[in-house]
Amino acid sequence: MTDKQKAVAYWKENLRYLVILLTIWFLVSYCAGILFKDALNNIRLGGFKLGFWFAQQGSIYTFVILIFVYVRLMNKLDKKYGYDE
């Protein structure tokens, strides 16, 4: 595999990871916090309605977790394609 082919494959896989992780974040922040808020408000978490919790805290927690997941995935991807140090 040439360097150019490796770079193209690397970025395709990187973009796939980004699309998946951003879709998860969208589903948690927008869908759970806004669209499905009324249905989720029937469930309580720590005394708060679940829809409210997702809108205020859940999307932030999910974003931070997704950052760590992305770092781990990128470290594996760097090793796979030989871009690690």
Results as ranks from 00 to 15, higher is better:
residue 55 A to I: 02
residue 12 K to V: 13
residue 49 K to R: 04
residue 28 V to P: 06
residue 24 I to R: 07
residue 55 A to T: 07
residue 79 K to D: 01
residue 49 K to Q: 11
residue 23 T to S: 15
residue 52 F to K: 01
residue 46 G to H: 04
residue 57 Q to G: 00
residue 71 V to Y: 06
residue 11 W to F: 12
residue 47 G to H: 09
residue 24 I to T: 10
residue 73 L to I: 05
residue 42 N to I: 07
residue 75 N to M: 09
residue 68 F to N: 06
residue 23 T to H: 07
residue 31 C to R: 05
residue 41 N to A: 03
residue 41 N to L: 02
residue 73 L to P: 05
residue 15 L to M: 15
residue 23 T to W: 09
residue 80 K to D: 01
residue 6 K to W: 04
residue 19 V to C: 12
residue 8 V to G: 03
residue 74 M to Q: 09
residue 65 I to C: 10
residue 68 F to S: 03
residue 81 Y to D: 00
residue 79 K to I: 05
residue 36 F to Y: 15
residue 4 K to N: 12
residue 28 V to H: 09
residue 41 N to P: 01
residue 75 N to H: 08
residue 84 D to K: 00
residue 82 G to T: 00
residue 44 R to W: 12
residue 5 Q to H: 02
residue 71 V to G: 00
residue 44 R to E: 15
residue 59 S to N: 15
residue 78 D to H: 11
residue 61 Y to E: 10
residue 15 L to A: 11
residue 39 A to Y: 12
residue 9 A to R: 13
residue 18 L to N: 08
residue 85 E to F: 13
residue 15 L to G: 10
residue 15 L to H: 14
residue 52 F to Q: 03
residue 25 W to T: 03
residue 10 Y to V: 03
residue 54 F to M: 13
residue 80 K to M: 02
residue 60 I to L: 10
residue 31 C to H: 13
residue 62 T to V: 08
residue 3 D to A: 08
residue 78 D to G: 01
residue 75 N to D: 04
residue 33 G to H: 01
residue 53 W to F: 15
residue 2 T to M: 04
residue 63 F to T: 13
residue 5 Q to W: 03
residue 78 D to S: 03
residue 68 F to G: 05
residue 61 Y to N: 08
residue 8 V to F: 11
residue 64 V to Y: 09
residue 31 C to Y: 14
residue 35 L to I: 15
